[in-house]
Simulated scan of single mutants.
Amino acid sequence: MPEFSSGGASIAYEVAGEGKPMLLVHGFAATAEDNWVRTGWVQALTRARRQVVTLDLRGHGKSAKLYDPADYTTDKMAGDALALLDHLGIERASLMGYSMGAGIAAHLAAHHGARFGVVVLGGVGAKMLETGERIGGVAEALEAESAEGITEPLARGFRLYAEGLGQDLKALAACSRAPRAGDRGADLGLIRNEVLVIAGARDDLAGDPGPFAARIAGARAEIVPGTDHMFALANPMFKGAVMDFLAGIT
């Protein structure tokens, strides 16, 4: 993957296809390869005549590994995405984020909406609007000597997932400890883009996408039957709903 420098951090990225640009932002503990290539998104979007831009978020994949939680604020991670568009000379792009990436995408749409066309927020819902920690012990699970003894299912799941991708667990632990003030709905009312909020019916991490979409003027909500948080991106019905949305808007 090529790299560029954003605020002193090396950010790895890829560009595929030709056509209208679309930026994809992956979730926590994931990589661009795992969220967007392995699941067929890059292939589907390039076939739909999109130029697809992906990046490994700081602390993830092939991008810089940082160990201070202050380096993982939403402002800084969203800033990397904007800096990438500037680096590539892209003035305006469609935008899709999943899970933590959807939080970053929502922040971008709220504060830099003119840089983006349609926006897809995947793997988010009512639970993302709740205050307090939604998943207990993620940082501790990532820092543990092994996954044995981790009893919280989601924390254990993130640990095993990150290990399977060969991630830097200490960098991810720092990311999980980053301050997220304002991430859970405060800025949603500022968004003026065409937005789809979508999650699986069995997504216990996100919850119902309807209340989340209700915070955004004119946003659509969609629930995909039979899928959960970890497997939604690979689900054909999830992909079909997003592609139908994109085809109907642009």
Results as ranks from 00 to 15, higher is better:
126 A>W: 05
176 S>D: 09
26 H>V: 10
12 A>H: 14
242 V>Y: 01
157 G>P: 01
145 E>G: 10
237 M>R: 14
88 L>V: 01
116 F>E: 03
7 G>C: 02
250 T>L: 13
124 V>H: 05
197 V>C: 13
110 A>Q: 01
145 E>M: 09
232 A>L: 14
89 G>P: 11
105 A>D: 14
231 F>Q: 10
76 K>I: 04
165 L>D: 06
249 I>P: 04
128 M>C: 07
113 G>R: 11
61 G>N: 03
249 I>G: 08
105 A>K: 12
34 D>G: 03
39 T>N: 14
22 M>G: 06
219 A>Y: 10
163 E>H: 00
33 E>W: 01
236 P>N: 13
25 V>S: 06
208 D>I: 07
26 H>A: 00
219 A>S: 11
1 M>Q: 09
14 E>T: 15
218 G>W: 11
28 F>W: 03
68 D>C: 00
163 E>L: 12
179 P>V: 02
157 G>M: 10
187 D>Q: 13
26 H>K: 05
5 S>D: 13
5 S>C: 04
31 T>Y: 03
72 Y>T: 01
44 A>F: 05
6 S>C: 13
137 G>P: 00
173 A>Y: 11
216 I>D: 05
93 A>D: 03
94 S>G: 09
112 H>R: 02
204 D>H: 13
26 H>D: 03
100 M>Y: 06
30 A>N: 15
195 V>R: 05
44 A>M: 14
121 L>E: 04
25 V>L: 15
204 D>Y: 12
76 K>E: 06
76 K>Q: 05
120 V>E: 09
118 V>A: 13
13 Y>W: 01
161 Y>W: 12
80 D>T: 02
108 L>I: 07
135 I>T: 14
77 M>G: 04
167 Q>F: 07
12 A>I: 06
95 L>I: 04
23 L>Y: 06
151 T>F: 03
187 D>R: 09
101 G>Q: 07
168 D>R: 01
104 I>E: 05
207 G>I: 01
80 D>V: 02
149 G>L: 00
244 D>E: 14
24 L>V: 07
198 I>F: 02
220 R>M: 14
5 S>T: 06
73 T>M: 07
250 T>V: 14
94 S>E: 15
36 W>L: 11
176 S>G: 15
234 A>C: 08
196 L>F: 08
54 T>Y: 05
137 G>M: 01
245 F>S: 12
34 D>M: 08
212 F>P: 08
175 C>R: 01
14 E>F: 08
178 A>V: 14
184 R>M: 11
136 G>R: 08
